[in-house]
Amino acid sequence: MLTIAMAVTAADTFVDKAEADDGWARDLRLFIPIADPQLWQPAIPLLQKALHFLSGDLWEIILLPDGPRQLTSQNRGRITVMAGHDCVSLFSGGMDSGIGALNLLAEDRRPLLISHAYRGDSEKQIMVRDHLPVEVSRFAAVANPVSLTGRKTDVQMRTRSFNFLAYGALVGATLAQLRVTGTPVELFVPENGLIALNPPMTARRIGALSTRTTHPHFLGLFQKILDTVGLPVRVENPYALQTKGEMLSGCLDQANLRVLASETVSCGKWKRTHQQCGKCVPCVIRRASFHAAGMTDGTAYHARGADLTSVVRDANARDDLMAMILAARRLPAEDVAKWVRQSGPLPLHRQSRDYLVDVASRGMGEVRNYLWSLGLL
């Protein structure tokens, strides 16, 4: 799994979308030597489908023999203590992953936290982890291919969640080996329902132009990949039917949440300045969630994004905010089911589909109420 994930990351990094025939959808063919290609052969169609959904590219994966194999134990590097943990949970340093960890601990679970630690992210993740009431282990790694020739790289990295989940699968499958029962280990992916679905705020953001990293369709495909190759891991988003505000107000550990919440990161532009901008789509949803939960937002937003009424007047800074305002204005008359389907397939089961449509409507309702409170609607 990791060998394939690293190859995908390298391809996604070094093949510039501008070189595609249409300037966006690349035609990628990967030859990947792995330890057991025969085992993985049946999973290739699922892999290609999942990667196409994430990036909008066409992927062809050819598996070759004699790839990397597991090494014997090395007395070097940082040791991740696995004893005492009963599940794994993705941990980005964001609010949703922080709430996910708090809730698991409040339920007497012991999650081993999984972090994709880009430069600057690791410090924030450690800070948030240190605010948790119980000490738990954290597995952190980063796949950051660098060109030795100075070749331009694609910074979008739309397949990064495949790598993130591969880390989780690695640790989850290892935990499963330590269980005498051999039962699958839960891999929790804490993400509020609106962000997971990520319906397009404007027509320009339809399809792979919007990230699909935790969309239920993608997580379902990833689960099928795990099942096909026999990895004993169960992927679950416990908050797929909750808004971000509902996650805040429903957190089982409110005392620690009030300390932790403002330290978390939601910003889509965090990697550029290591300060939350306050005006991108994830930041606006974050701010709306505090408003919906009746909690004080102590986040240190960048000065240019702290006052959204000023952002609206700045033609060079208001793109994301205006997209949110327009989407919120459409909400009362919007066909929400049609809107949500634009981001990806929904379950065939009617009730499951209705639940997802409803959480998107409630999530945008939180945004609408927040923007209205600022006089922006």
Rank of each mutant, 00 (worst) to 15 (best):
A240Y: 07
F218A: 04
G182F: 09
V88W: 00
S92G: 06
G363R: 11
K17Y: 14
D36A: 07
A143L: 12
F164G: 04
S97E: 01
L219D: 01
L132Y: 09
A292R: 07
G56T: 11
K152C: 11
T202C: 10
G220A: 14
A101D: 00
A101W: 01
L226E: 01
T273W: 10
L46H: 11
D354T: 12
I62V: 12
V312T: 09
R110E: 01
T202Y: 11
V128H: 00
L231N: 03
V8R: 00
H302Q: 12
L39R: 11
D96S: 15
F91K: 04
L346S: 03
W270H: 10
H215S: 11
V180M: 14
V235E: 06
R353D: 05
Y239G: 03
V284H: 00
C283S: 07
I34M: 03
H52Y: 08
S373F: 09
R160G: 09
H52P: 05
R179M: 01
D21A: 10
I206D: 05
L197W: 05
S97V: 09
C87I: 08
L252W: 15
R26V: 14
M127R: 08
R362C: 02
M1G: 12
N103F: 03
G245N: 03
D21G: 08
P37W: 04
R368K: 15
S97C: 07
F31S: 12
P111N: 02
T296F: 07
R362L: 02
M322R: 06
E60M: 12
K271L: 06
Q342M: 08
S343R: 01
G220S: 03
A261Y: 02
L102R: 03
K269A: 08
E366H: 09
V180Y: 14
D354V: 13
H274Q: 10
